[in-house]
Design a binder for these strands. Sequence first.
DNA 1: ATCTCACTTTAGAACCGTTCTAAACAGGCG
DNA 2: CGCCTGTTTAGAACGGTTCTAAAGTGAGAT
Lengths: 136, 136
Amino acid sequence: MNEDILKALLDHGVQPSAQRLAVARYVLATHDHPTADRVFSVVRESFPWISRATVYNTLNLFVEKGLLRAPALTGGSVVFDPNTARHHHFIDEKSGAIHDVPWESVEVCNIEALEGFDVTDFQVVMRGVKRRRRRT
Amino acid sequence: MNEDILKALLDHGVQPSAQRLAVARYVLATHDHPTADRVFSVVRESFPWISRATVYNTLNLFVEKGLLRAPALTGGSVVFDPNTARHHHFIDEKSGAIHDVPWESVEVCNIEALEGFDVTDFQVVMRGVKRRRRRT
DNA sequence: ATCTCACTTTAGAACCGTTCTAAACAGGCG
DNA sequence: CGCCTGTTTAGAACGGTTCTAAAGTGAGAT
């Protein structure tokens, strides 16, 4: 099982080290969507001398190498939207700009049938590039 | 037009003040999804003596009163997810826990047909409460 | 017009999550 | 051994946000 983790690191081009293995052992197995700080405190239980910077470095490295994802809508600071009606969001990966997408232009099915969850609200978050307006 | 804004504040139970009107004038009209800091610098152009704390207070008040939304997936710190396959997310509003939702269990249509956007990736972000597992 | 009370605003400190910096460390190889 | 490259470390710095304590404002009562 430790070998699996080691293999995962090597497969993604991450040079292994004791600290990186310790981080990987927790973060690749959990379903908790932990924050970096949570990773730090969990890993420190079994590896008390690890530093905060190493955990941050390691997590960022893992994301860069594709071992992890860091799903986030905004990436840091809160944004405000005066459009209080239901709508979706499109994030332009080039500029970072966020655009509202009308509710009707995307159709989402099966949400109500979701096993185990009572969904009271949802939205589609899209990423991509804004297309230059075409001559119609 | 200033009256519209005043009316919006009053309709939502926000006691008006010069500063709140200045913030509202910008943030209720824009489509820019500004951060709080951007609001601060824009408003300060026409209202140089406003303080940062007032802008933050005002924006939070507006969100609380339903004049604005602050759409965010995580609400601050980055979370990490070892599931690198495509999937959706469900956020439990009670506990804040984030759950993965299998890609197949929700169907999204019309994304490709979206006028003006080349969508390279998307996910559905759901909110609600996790239902107690039913006896089947 | 003055007093008062509740609310708002202010500047700056504090806070929290994250990144940076500079130095120490580890290990493979000449 | 000594070097080189990459890794880890502690702590400082940073950026966005919230807190604090004091000052300001305004509507109603007198």
